[in-house]
């Protein structure tokens, strides 16, 4: 009656994607907070933010049906 497979899939995917987004964004923030702000850390931080931005863009892609017309 209830589609447990789909439910588990949803739970798992949300867990992984939210976890990944938060991990990457938080890593970026942590890298910015490294003492003395070495160049590598700043570059790494912005790389993290870029990945997050891509994640948000993927979210928009999923929201707008015209982009993934079936």
């Amino acid at each position: 009656m209830i589609n447990w497979g789909a439910f588990l899939l949803v739970a798992l995917v949300s867990l992984v994607s939210a976890g990944a987004l938060v991990t990457i964004y938080a890593s970026g923030l942590r890298l910015l907070a490294v003492d003395g702000r070495p160049r590598a850390a700043v570059v790494g931080a912005y790389a993290c933010f870029t990945v997050c931005a891509l994640g948000v863009l993927f979210g928009i892609y999923l929201i707008v049906p015209a982009l993934h017309a079936s």
Binding site: N3, A6, F7, L9, V10, S17, L62
Partner: peptide, 8 residues
């Protein structure tokens, strides 16, 4: 997003 695209 997951729930609206994975059918639950």
């Amino acid at each position: 997003l997951a729930s609206s695209h994975l059918g639950f």
